[in-house]
Amino acid sequence: MDESVSTVLSRYIREDLLPGFPALDENLSLFEAGVLDSLALIKVLLFVERRFGVRLGMKDLSLASFDTIAQIAALVEAQGKDR
């Protein structure tokens, strides 16, 4: 069975972006928790682009749409449907 986008993102953050970071609730604020900063943000965008083939631009990066794994997953899925 294909893994969900949320699962893949969560694993990427815990294994590659911040090795050893505890399990992530998909509704946790990533900025608030210190998971995302300007460097990490670019890495996540690069990962999303490579792994899911979707391109997210600046308009997608507001706190309202890019702050939790669930929000990022929703963006990726929405773009995937548009393609």
Partner: peptide
């Protein structure tokens, strides 16, 4: 060189 996402770079 894979340092910048394509969409951000385009913008």
């Amino acid at each position: 060189t894979g340092r910048l996402p394509t969409a951000i770079a385009g913008e």
